[in-house]
Design a protein around this nucleic acid. Sequence first.
DNA 1: TTGAAAGCGCTAACAT
DNA 2: ATGTTAGCGCTTTCAA
Lengths: 336, 336
Amino acid sequence: MPGIDEVARLAGVSTATVSRALNGKLSVSGPTRDRVLAAASRLGYVVSSNASGLATGRTKNVGVVIPFLNRWFYSSVIEGAESALLQRGYDLTLYNLSGGGEERRSVFEHFLLRKRVDAVIAISLELTPSEVSRMLAMNTPIVGIGGPLPGVRTLSVDDVEVARRCTQYLIDLGHHSIAHIGGSQESERDFHLPTSRRVGYEAALADAGIPIDPSLFEAGSFTIESGHRAAMRLLSQPHRPTAIFAASDEMAIGAILAVRELGLAVPGDVSVIGIDDHELASFFGLTTIAQFPQEQGRRAVEMLMEELHPGTGDTLALNVPLPVELVVRQSTARRG
Amino acid sequence: MPGIDEVARLAGVSTATVSRALNGKLSVSGPTRDRVLAAASRLGYVVSSNASGLATGRTKNVGVVIPFLNRWFYSSVIEGAESALLQRGYDLTLYNLSGGGEERRSVFEHFLLRKRVDAVIAISLELTPSEVSRMLAMNTPIVGIGGPLPGVRTLSVDDVEVARRCTQYLIDLGHHSIAHIGGSQESERDFHLPTSRRVGYEAALADAGIPIDPSLFEAGSFTIESGHRAAMRLLSQPHRPTAIFAASDEMAIGAILAVRELGLAVPGDVSVIGIDDHELASFFGLTTIAQFPQEQGRRAVEMLMEELHPGTGDTLALNVPLPVELVVRQSTARRG
DNA sequence: TTGAAAGCGCTAACAT
DNA sequence: ATGTTAGCGCTTTCAA
C-alpha cells in the first residue's frame, strides 16, 4: 500500500500537489496533473479514508438506518441508495434496528456519533427529537424517507391520498362492500402508516356516502401470511365483501391466495388491490399503486448530496412528495 | 462533540490515560478508570473513528460484498452478520454488486482499498485470484460464504449432498419420476451452485437405479415466477412427474402454485421439495432443507473476529461446513 | 500506573 | 501553480 509521499516522489512533486491533483482542485497545471495521475495509477495508490477523513472532517460514507432489512420495500430502498452512493464515491454503512430497543440506543448514542458517516438516511423511522438533535448537533445532515419528521428533510408519499385512490378505484368499479386489511398497533412504528392508509380508506367511503362497517376491517402485519389470515376472516363472514383493499401488496397477495382457496375467483367474485408494486405483484396479476422504493433511495441520496456539496442557488426543499402510480392488472374488475 | 482532551481535563489525567482507560487496557488503576469513564459519559464523549483508525490501523468496520441484496437469502445473511458485528462494536459497510461488472471493479479496486474496512465477508461470490490477492496484500482478512475459494477461509453447505438428500427423500417416498428445477447458465455466478445441486440430484437417481431423463429438468432463475413457469412446462408433458425437487424454495413455491393452477393437488398428485427454508416455506407447507442464512452471517463474523483478535490457541479452520436440516411439512407424500 | 511526545497519512493555509 | 508546514484526534512508545 503506497502512501501519498511515494506518489509525490514518483511524480516529482510535493504531497500537497498530489492531493490537489487527485481531488480535482483547479490550481494544478495540466501536465502536472497528468504526471500525478499516472504515478498514482502506476503505484495503485488509493487514499486512506481515515487520514483523509481526519484532515477534512468528511468521510465519504453515509449511514442508512432501517427498521427491517428483510423486506422487499427496505432492501429496495437500500439498493437504490447504494448504487447512487457508489457512483459518487460514497460508501454505505448499514444500521438495522430490527434487533430492538437496545440496538437502537447504541446506534444513535455510539455508532452514529463516532464520525464515521457524513450524513444519515433514516427509512420509515420516527426519530425522536433527541435522536434528531444529536445528529444536527454534529452537523450531520439527515434525510428521512416516509415523513414528515420535525426538523428533518423528508421524502414521503401521501399515504392518506394513496389509500383514498385505491378505495376510490374500487368504488368507481361499482363496489360498495369494500374490506380493508390494514396494520395493527405494533406495526405503527412505521410512521402511523397503517393509520394513514385506514384514514384514506374511510375518507373515500365517506365521500361516496358508503357507511363504514367495522367488520370489514382486519389487521395484518404486512406479510403474505397475515394477509391470508385476515382475508380468510373477512371472506367467511355472512355478508362477504366484493372487494378488498390491502395496505400492502404482500397482504394483498395473501388475500388473493385466500380467495382462491375458498374456491372463489379473483376478480370474478372478489377484487383485490394493494399498495407497493412488489416484485411479485405482476406474477399474481395484482392491481396496485406503485411507490418505486429504489427511486426513493436514489432521491434521498441526491438530497443529501445537495446538502453536502452545496451548488449554486439550490434551495433545500424540506418535505418532498414522492410520486406514485396506479398499475392496473387483473385482480380488479367491475362488480359482477 | 467533545474530544479526548476535554475528557482528560475533566478527569484530571492525560489523554494517554483516557485512551488507555477507554480501551480497557490493564495498566490503569481502578479509581482512575472510574473517573475517566465518568468524565467521558458526562461529556457524551465518543471516540472519532477516523482519528482512532489512523492511529491504530483498525477501523472497527467490516465490508460485506454481495451479488444481490433484494433476495431473502442475502438479506438474511446480512441481518445475521449485522447484529453480530454491532454487538462487538463493529459497523457493517455494504457493497452490492448487482449493478454489474463496472461496479464490481470499482469496489475491489477502489472502495475496499481505502482502508475503511478491517475485513471482508464475501457472500456467494467467486472472487478472482487478483481480487483475493489484493485483499491479502493489504492484510485484510476475508471470509467467504458459499465456497470453497482458493486462499480464502470459507463457510459452505455441501450443495451436492443437500440435493442428494432432497432427491433421496423423494425416492424413499416411492417416487420414480422426479423432476428437477435448477438454475440456468447465468445464475452460475453463484458458485456453480445450480450445477452442484443438479449433480446431487442425478447422483441420487443413479444410486437408486433410476435413469436420468433430460425432459425432467427445467431451468429457472430462483424466483417464484420462474419456478412456476418451469413447473408448468414439466407438468404439461405427456408423462408428468409425481415429484418435483426445486433448487430453491422460491422456485418450489412457484411449482406448488403451478400444480394448484392445473387443478392438481400437492402432495396428492405431485410432491414438491425445495432448499432454503424461506420465510414463506411454512405458509405454503413446503418440505425443504433449511440452511439458516442468519446463522451463516453470524458465523462468518465469528471467524473474522478470531482472525482480527487472535485468542489463545485458536486454530483457524479453512473451510467450515455448514449445518442443514430437513424440514418435513405437507408438500411431500408417499406416491399414491 | 501515568505523562510527554512522536507519529498515523492526509489536507489546507499560507508562502512563494 | 506549487511547496512548506501545521494540524486533524487519537494511540503508543518511551521515560519517569
